[in-house]
Design a binder for these strands. Structure first.
Lengths: 137, 137
DNA sequence: AAAATTTATGCAATTAAGTTGCAAAGTTAT
DNA sequence: ATAACTTTGCAACTTAATTGCATAAATTTT
């Protein structure tokens, strides 16, 4: 497996097993977020639970982040290299109701909201639904 | 059953059955959003599917709106009288990670975001997670 | 008012996503 | 090489959401 992938895993303190290298390779190549069942289809031989735990491990170690896009299945996408998943660096996600794909809009930060008094903010999930540029044509 | 409840149902073109009156009465009294299983516990005698379909009917007719707060179960809360559930009139929801309650922040509209070119907006789901005023004390 | 039709409700069962327990296989340290 | 730990695979379970179908209730037609 290619060195950059192992570097990525090592830099996030995740041991580079064959499974993890393969999964990370797939994740890196995605242009849209991917669900566990999407991943299952790409690895017909691999066990669902192993893929599940691989995603969980990646998420815990901030290699990827999970997105609840309201589609009923959680999607996952790469974090940026420096991402710490703080509220301040969250971005908007876009779910296309036509192709069902979920995009990270990394350029669009989640706007700050002023909460009622004594409400403390931990994180924000902002998902925009609509038609993506590909489907609109 | 009280007249105002029937009025509400009639004004939204939902026939006022006993079940619907009871469910709407519960919904009106909530200060936070409620899930199907919450509702089941309040109506031990009623069938889950009936409650489910009652919620669906209410939602279709804009008596209530559903909220995907990321908790794994969809919550429901009353719409305002004039609500048409357009993107322009959406409000922010708040999920308390301590008490697990979901609040409609009716005073806080979802901020507008400018999407990449050729992305069309249909709706926005914005859920803020944190600690609510009740739990913070 | 009875019959026919539509609508609502209740029960059984299914689907799908997410998750846990445990044993086998693989890896690392002694 | 053995012991200790980590990862993987299989089986099974949980929960939420949903569908089909039969019965019951309400509404409409005759």
């Amino acid at each position: 497996m290619k060195i950059p992938i192992d570097d990525k895993l090592n830099s996030k303190n995740v041991k580079p097993t064959a499974m993890r290298e393969l999964v990370l390779d797939v994740l890196i190549k995605q242009t849209t977020a991917i669900s566990l069942s999407d991943l299952e289809q790409k690895f017909e031989k691999a066990d669902k639970v192993t893929l599940y735990r691989t995603l969980k491990t990646f998420e815990e170690n901030k290699i990827i982040h999970s997105i609840d896009d309201g589609s009923g299945s959680v999607k996952y996408a790469m974090c940026t290299d420096t991402c710490q998943c703080n509220p301040a660096e969250l971005h908007v996600h876009f779910f296309c109701t036509m192709c069902q794909k979920t995009y990270c809009l990394n350029e669009i930060p989640v706007p700050s909201v002023s909460l009622p008094v004594n409400f403390d903010l931990q994180s924000i999930n902002m998902v925009v639904k609509g038609i993506c540029a590909n489907c609109r044509r």
